[in-house]
Amino acid sequence: MANPSNKKTAPKRNAASTTNPLSVWWNQQASAIKFSMERLWFNPVSTWITLAAIAIALSLPTSLHLLLKNMQTLTADKREVPTITLFLKQSVAEQQAKDRAELLSEMPEIDNVRVVTREEALADFRKITGFAQTLETLDENPLPHVLILTPRLSLLGDLEMDVEGLSKKLKAFPEVDDVQIDVEWVQRLRGILRIAERIVLVVSILLGLTVLLVVGNTIRLDIENRKEEIRVTQLIGATNAYIRRPFIYNGIWLGLFGGVLSLVIVHVALLFLVEPVTKLANLYGSTFILSGIDVFMTLKILLASSLLGIIGSWLAVGRYLWQSDDAIKD
């Protein structure tokens, strides 16, 4: 169509299309961020309730994970290291026992070997109340030399480690009378922890879905309240991206602040636990210290919660936009 030959010319198109796209992008982000923040303050009660729901849902898997981590460090505690005890035959001399210890310590499965001579063992027994008199009545020391082996810790994590095989191998030595293996409980505990890990994973997924639903539903309600506004902005040329943006930021804030709140909850709970746990550990003669959330884990939690917020709001807005695609008539 030709322009009519009068002096009128079409007015300049909106200036934004001529300015640089990066600043357009930034201006749109900035106004969406500002607007979504204002929305949170706009309705503080519902915001706090939503944040609390998210925080509680997040703090449960976080604390379970923490519990698990602490139990794993417990089994890795050097002082609680599991041992294999070799009872040597009565006929074996002290020097023979020491030679055998020397040889054993060169086996790949073994970290170190300690020799407890029968004299030392007897002395130990004497220290235990009640045994002293009993021991007096004996003519000679009934105790054998004992070798205490510490297996390599890394092997214990491996459930496939052939405890039976090792036991048989040790028993085959001529000096050895009996083998008592004390590592099975560690393996069992680790097996249990592995199951617990799976449970934590399942709980995390379920509660992550809860966060997703909470955010999604909150955003959905927000959309309901702002239908008129969305319609008006669509009438004056808002793209779906523009409409989606403040809701997505809203989802990020809900996820992020919910995550922060859940960290606060977990920290407070930890503070509450530290003292009794330390006391209990002391009773067991352990230096175990309850470990908290490190920086890396903090970041991971915040990242995950923000991501859940984004996904939740994306789904809610996407559903609305999909439904309303042809329904923006006046």
Partner: peptide, 9 residues
């Protein structure tokens, strides 16, 4: 509103 939609400064 229309200017914000267009991303104006």
């Amino acid at each position: 509103l229309p200017l914000r939609i267009a991303g104006m400064g």
